[in-house]
Simulated scan of single mutants.
Amino acid sequence: MQIHTLDKAGIINELQFGAGINHAVHAGRRADFSLILSMFSDDVRDNTPVEKIDEPEITDQTLRKRFELQSPQQLRSDQSSYDISAAQAHAFHHGGMASAKLNHYLVPETLTYLPEETHDLPEEVYHNLSGHLRRQLIETKPKNLLPADLYNQLVVAQRSFQISAQA
């Protein structure tokens, strides 16, 4: 019964004992001192006040918005990247290399120009595919597979037809 009351006491440090630990040291009562120390919590989180710190989520987008940066350079081409490339070529022909560099730094050009609508396949591979494979690449909805118990369904349907035909 007394053990359970000591467990519920939740003794964390020496401040909860008051002068008891001090008297045990000065009186030379090693057993009392050892008992008091053994009742302290060994979890450092009990001894140290811990507060939850709410850190704001820092993402690439929030940093770009905070420092007023433009969007990152695209990795793959799309329809808008051809206009950007044409504008840079126009700046190069009319203003030289410095104008083209400035235009690139303001609106960066994409890194690679890959063929479009080839489902991330190289163009020569995509054009070598059969029409059936190209159609399968276009279809986004998966086909319904045959049910696992198709044979049982067919047998039950045949037997029920035979019973209804005889009746």
Rank of each mutant, 00 (worst) to 15 (best):
I3W: 11
L6A: 12
D7E: 10
K8W: 07
K8C: 02
A9H: 09
I11E: 01
N13I: 00
E14V: 08
G18M: 00
A19P: 08
G20R: 07
H23E: 01
V25H: 12
H26S: 15
G28R: 04
G28N: 10
G28A: 10
G28M: 08
R29M: 08
R29L: 07
F33R: 07
L35Q: 13
I36P: 06
I36H: 05
I36D: 04
I36F: 15
L37Y: 04
M39D: 00
F40V: 01
V44K: 07
D46P: 01
V50H: 05
V50M: 11
E51P: 02
E51H: 11
I53P: 01
E55I: 00
T62H: 02
L63V: 09
L63F: 10
L63R: 14
R64Q: 08
R66C: 07
F67I: 04
Q73D: 00
Q74G: 06
L75R: 10
R76G: 09
S77F: 03
Q79G: 09
S81A: 13
D83K: 14
S85A: 15
Q88P: 02
Q88F: 05
F92Y: 10
G96P: 01
G96T: 03
S99V: 00
A100S: 07
K101D: 12
H104W: 01
H104Q: 05
V107R: 01
E109F: 03
T112R: 09
T112M: 06
Y113P: 02
P115V: 00
E116H: 08
E117H: 12
L121V: 06
H127L: 13
H127T: 13
S130Q: 06
G131W: 00
R134V: 02
R134D: 04
E139T: 15
P142A: 04
P142L: 01
K143H: 09
P147V: 08
D149G: 06
L150F: 13
L150G: 03
L150Q: 10
Y151E: 04
Q153L: 08
Q153C: 04
Q153T: 07
L154C: 08
V155M: 10
A157T: 08
Q162P: 03
Q162D: 12
Q162E: 13
I163K: 15
S164Y: 09
S164R: 13
